[in-house]
Structures are given as structure tokens and as C-alpha cells.
Write a protein that binds this DNA or RNA. Structure first.
Lengths: 226, 226
DNA sequence: CATTAAATAATAGTAATACTTTTATATTAG
DNA sequence: CTAATATAAAAGTATTACTATTATTTAATG
């Protein structure tokens, strides 16, 4: 069955683009090809000139969609977190038990997506890799505060607040729900980065390690009501 | 009493510089002034030309010490982690009790240093801010693997392995000591960044929050032997 | 179908940056 | 005093990120 998301549109803050890339053929090409290229080159070596060459378009045309490559990265990040948020809501919705709900959320945040759903003409695994490698750069810079005011990180923050709510439902007496939620979301990326690049700091290299680590943590740190 | 560190020299990997900045007057000026300027401008807007102007020296002279500004950032990071490692060893050395030892380590990692010791002609609090704001950029880039092979992150990794050892001493049966250690070291920086820039994701804005969060976590996650 | 508006392409240009090269000058060590 | 080394000054190069201009194509509307 076709995924629901394929008939919906992620509502991405219009501050992130000059012209909506979902509104044209060229826009779609920009998104899908930029994922490939940033994945291959890294954000530093990637630029709009190279992208233009690859999609038989022109640098200046791309600038009509995005202010610069970091804005594009923020857009791609919003897409990623939007998809995660969507899965989080859909896949935890029916779960009654608070603890099980939270654990499912953590699964979604940590495990590689399996049956990639048909939403998207782009490669979701490559997008995930980009987030692991580059997301930190989309919000570590001098303009972070004004970017933030503009709502560039709305989806990301809303996602974290959803986790906070789940944590509160499991254990309302826990004192650091926000810190814990940030920790899990950001830490999961961090763990994968370390697995890839700092092997000596990795306990065991397995996809499920990251999930197990947080599961163990959650179960011990939170005291379920009943 | 004068700190021991003032009579020692941090042993920073020679891969990080072309000429040892500790070996000359100009080198010292480069270090202390770059801390001020990166703190003020952020690493992106900072460059060697501007630095040269501020210390009445020349761009090209600075290039004889450091390959580029990111290498300088890695050097400053090594300095920071070197000081933390030093404090970690000195201040936990006499503590017998494993758990107390680990908690002291976490204090050092999370709390703002108080009685700044006399090691250094530079501003340690500014250096700490730089690490919070910019450290992630020193190891999120395409050359990370070769940088790493060259030993650019030796001190950082050794520091983490010290924490791992402390964790193992408290609870040898714990399955994720490395993940937990990375988490604490990196997460502490992350928490401060979020406190500063994502207020809505902060539980309570207080310096001690970060320490309390990890203390709570450690006490619940690890099962002391006795 | 004709007209108009909008989107895109092609080209060139600008300003800044990151870094190199060359040459001159100052400092230091033997 | 001499020679080696460190630094300064100045100019130059290649790249990048972005803008501006004009031409061409496409789509939308009456």
C-alpha cells in the first residue's frame, strides 16, 4: 500500500527557501541531486555551480530557490526531521503503553529506516547520512539566533518536544525531560558519527547498538508510574 | 600556590602545527589573540589576515605556524582538552571511591572552571566558549579520517578513555561504557549550546543543571559493585 | 492563436577569501 | 662578524560565493 506521506506535503518553513522547490521540476532536481552530491562531496566542497552542471541547469537559477548552500542544507534537514516526525506520530499513535510508545520513538530515531516508503524521489538513506555528517553545521554558526527566530528549526524543535511529552507521560516526576530528549535525538547522530570515524571510541559496531544504549538508559533513568 | 601545570607543557601533537607556537613570542600572541578573535567573530568570519592586523604581524608569518584556521582550531581544542585531562587526573587522583571519582570527573567536564589557575596567558573561559560553539566543526569534515590517523584528536580520545575506565570501575557489567563516556563529554557541550541558543529546549537555565542531569543519569544507569 | 508574464539559461563580473611567492629586513647563534 | 633563521611587506593566484544583465524558453490567459 502506498504511504500516506506520498499524498501529503511536508510543511517546511518558507524562510528556508526563496522559491518553493516543491513547485517545479527544477526544484525537485535541485533537492534530489543535492542530496547525492552533498553525500559524496560533503557540504564544504559542494557548491551551486557544480550542482548546476550536474542537473544541466545554471548556478543562477539555483540561487532563485535558495539563498545559499547552508540554507539548502537547513531545508534538507527540515525534510529529514519532518519525515521522522511523521513516522513518529504514525507509528506510535496506536500504542497505549507510555513506555512502549517512548521506546518505539527511540527506535525510529536510532535505527536505519527499513522499508523506505514511497514518499520521495530521493534517497532517504543518503539523506540520513547527510544529517549524521552535516546537520551540526546547519545550526552551529554566528547567525543561529536569527535563523532560529525565523523559524528555521521549527520542525526539529517540535519533534523534540514530542519526545519530551512522551518522557513526561512515562515519568512526570523526572527533572530533565528536555535535556534527555535533546540528548537522545542529537546523541543518536553523534553515536553514528563516532562509529564511523572514531572506531576506538565505539563499544561494538552494530546498527542496533545505538538503540540498545538508549533503551537501557531510558529504562533505568525513568520511573514508570505503575 | 602556583599551579603545577604552569611548569609543565601540554604535549600537543606536532601534526597540528607547522612550527610550535609555544616556541616563540609571536606563537604565543597567535594563540591568545586568536582565542579572543574566534570568540568574538566565530570561526567562519575569523581569518589570518585579520589576526595579523591585530597582533601587528603578517598573514604570511602566521601561515608558518598553522596550515590554516581549522588546524589552529584543532590546536586550541587540543589545548582545552589537555587542560581538562590534566585537571581530571589531578583532581580525581586522591579519591578512593569509584563513584565519587566519576562524579568529580563529571563536575570537571560540566562546570565552568572557577579558580582559573595561572597556567596560561589566555582567557580560559573564552576558550571554553569557543569549544562549546566551534569544537564540532573541528572534526566534522571530509578529512576527518586522515586527521584522525595523524593523531590530531589523541588527547580528546585519551580523555574519553579515562572516563571509560572510571565507568568500568564503578560498574564492570555495564554494556556501553564508551557510548556513555562520549555522551557525557560531547553532550555537555551540546547542553550548553542549547541553553544559549534554543531556550525552548532547556529545562532550567542554570550552570549546575548540566551537572545535575548527568549525576542523576550516572547514579541510575550504573550499578555500583558494592 | 497571440500576447504577456514568468522561469530559466548563458555570460560576465565583483568582492572576498585562502593561500603562495618573492623579496627585503630583522634577529639570533656560533 | 657571518650565516642561518624568523619575520614583514607586498603582490599575486585560484577559488568561491554571489550578483547583475540580457537573452531565450515555457506557461498562462484572453
Amino acid at each position: 500500500m502506498e504511504s500516506l506521506l506520498s499524498s501529503l506535503k511536508l510543511n517546511i518553513s518558507s524562510c528556508l527557501y526563496l522559491k518553493d522547490p516543491e513547485s517545479s521540476e527544477l526544484g525537485h532536481k535541485i533537492l534530489s541531486k543535492s542530496i547525492e552530491m552533498i553525500h559524496e562531496l560533503g557540504i564544504e566542497s559542494f557548491n551551486f555551480k557544480k550542482l548546476g552542471q550536474q542537473i544541466d541547469s545554471n548556478e543562477s537559477s539555483i540561487y532563485r530557490y535558495f539563498e545559499n548552500k547552508y540554507r539548502l542544507l537547513q531545508y534538507l534537514s527540515a525534510m529529514y526531521w519532518g519525515i521522522i516526525e511523521y513516522r513518529l506520530v504514525i507509528e506510535t499513535n496506536a500504542i497505549e503503553d507510555c513506555s512502549k510508545k517512548l521506546l518505539m520513538a527511540i527506535k525510529i530515531l536510532t535505527l536505519k529506516p527499513k522499508g523506505i516508503d514511497s514518499y520521495s524521489d530521493f534517497d532517504q538513506l543518503k539523506l540520513r547520512d547527510i544529517i549524521i555528517e552535516e546537520f551540526t553545521k546547519s545550526y552551529h554558526h554566528k547567525d543561529i539566533d536569527s535563523d532560529n527566530e525565523d523559524g528555521n528549526f521549527k520542525i526539529y524543535k517540535r519533534l523534540i518536544l514530542r519526545i519530551v511529552e512522551m518522557i513526561n507521560n512515562v515519568d512526570p516526576s523526572y527533572n530533565f525531560p528536555k535535556a534527555l530528549a535533546c540528548h537522545i535525538v542529537e546523541g543518536a547522530l553523534q553515536q553514528y558519527y563516532i562509529q564511523r570515524h572514531f572506531k576506538s571510541l565505539t563499544d561494538r559496531k552494530a546498527e542496533t547498538q545505538v538503540y540498545k544504549f538508549y533503551k537501557d538508559m531510558i529504562l533505568k533513568v525513568l520511573n514508570p508510574k505503575h
